[in-house]
Design a protein around this nucleic acid. Structure first.
Length: 353
DNA sequence: CGCCTTTGACCGGCGC
DNA sequence: GCGCCGGTCAAAGGCG
């Protein structure tokens, strides 16, 4: 598979608003740590999508998984122009989302976890807007009992499947209902179905989606022992929108840790629950309030710009290469302004000059 | 050769 | 019980 990359220089263009309903990350292409291995001169240039997701996740709460029990504090959504992230246990949510962008369910999602960030009642799934989340973050491991349990279960299951020859596979333990790992779903505007997030995925299945002309693809993280899965499907309502659902939690860092990530990497010990260092911009918490909705719109020409009022010019981003869509997204939205500490920005700028 | 995608078959959950 | 459907498996083939 060819790694999609952005051209080194991307002229500014129109940063269109996201479509209706749901959150939209607009990305024109994909990239990965892998892809950026050669060209990522800038710390930022090779920042993987998942890294960013991780960042955003942290943005949501010190532990996003904690938010399963404690809804994250979120900035208010900006109506339709929202970058929505769902973490849920309900498989049907996305289907419903796809088939009806304005369902009552969605409204409940919005109301439940957005307008009432500290709501005491937590729906089985909750929506996290403007905070692209990922299972990948050390900060979530502390409350990911279910994940680890499931990982083990998965591994055990895999072994069983492998050891036992062929057909009697799936001899799953009876009476043991398969537990779903927490899921994070988000919608992106993209021409590319499979957004490269820096991790290595192996496609293990594809199914036709009911009421949709677009198939759903199933991916699994290829790293040994990592049972993270990913589902990718294109919205039937809005073919330009790709719904990506992550399931599980990476037990490893990004296969190719982008150099730039160092800038974000915090000592995992400072979070007390990390088995590896991942971007942990805890300073984000201080800036939560400034969060802008992530509305990323790509155009076929990959021209992207921003409409965000406070993102007209980012010293940090001046002259940066944009080998990946996430970078674009952030640049686009001036997000770095909010999430990157000034010293870091300065440093980056200096490096850039 | 290793890794990946494709694809049909299979399995389990769930609703009727 | 049956059928539908989502999810997974694994053989086969492609690609670098």
């Amino acid at each position: 598979m060819a790694n999609m990359r952005f051209p080194d220089e991307i002229p500014p263009s129109v940063f269109g608003g996201g479509g209706g309903g749901g959150s939209i990350f607009d990305m024109a292409g994909t990239s990965s740590c892998e892809a950026s291995g050669g060209g990522g001169d800038k710390w930022w240039g090779s920042l993987g999508f998942m890294d960013l997701l991780g960042i955003h996740q942290d943005f949501v709460a010190p532990s996003l998984f904690d938010s399963f029990n404690h809804p994250p504090i979120l900035p208010p959504p900006s109506s339709a122009e929202l970058a929505a992230v769902f973490h849920h246990h309900d498989d049907t949510l996305l289907n419903k989302l796809n088939t009806n962008n304005n369902t009552k369910q969605q409204q409940q999602l919005h109301q439940g976890s957005l307008s009432s960030p500290v709501a005491s009642t937590v729906p089985e799934y909750s929506e996290v807007l403007n905070n692209p989340a990922t299972p990948n973050s050390s900060s979530i491991s502390s409350s990911s009992n279910e994940v680890t349990a499931n990982d083990e279960q998965n591994k055990a299951g895999d072994h069983d499947d492998v050891d036992k020859t062929k057909k009697p596979l799936k001899l799953k333990k009876k009476n043991q209902k398969r537990q779903r790992e927490p899921r994070f779903a988000f919608m992106t505007k993209s021409e590319i179905d499979h957004l490269d997030d820096g991790y290595r995925w192996r496609k293990y299945g594809q199914k036709a989606v009911k009421n949709s002309p677009y198939p759903r693809s199933y991916y699994r993280c290829t790293t040994a022992g990592c049972g993270v899965k990913k589902r990718v499907e294109r919205s039937s309502d809005d073919p330009t929108t790709v719904v990506t659902t992550y399931e599980g939690q990476h037990t490893h860092p990004c296969p190719i840790m982008p150099r730039g990530t160092i800038g974000f990497a915090m000592d995992s010990s400072s979070f007390g629950s990390s088995s590896f260092v991942v971007p942990q911009p805890h300073f984000l918490h201080q800036h939560q309030q400034q969060l802008q909705p992530y509305i990323y719109t790509s155009s076929p020409s990959l021209n992207i710009t921003t409409t965000s009022s406070n993102s007209n010019h980012h010293p940090l981003l001046n002259g940066f290469n944009y080998p990946n869509s996430s970078a674009l997204a952030l640049r686009d939205h001036g997000l770095l302004q909010d999430i990157v500490p000034t010293p870091m920005r300065r440093e980056a700028k200096g490096e850039d000059e």
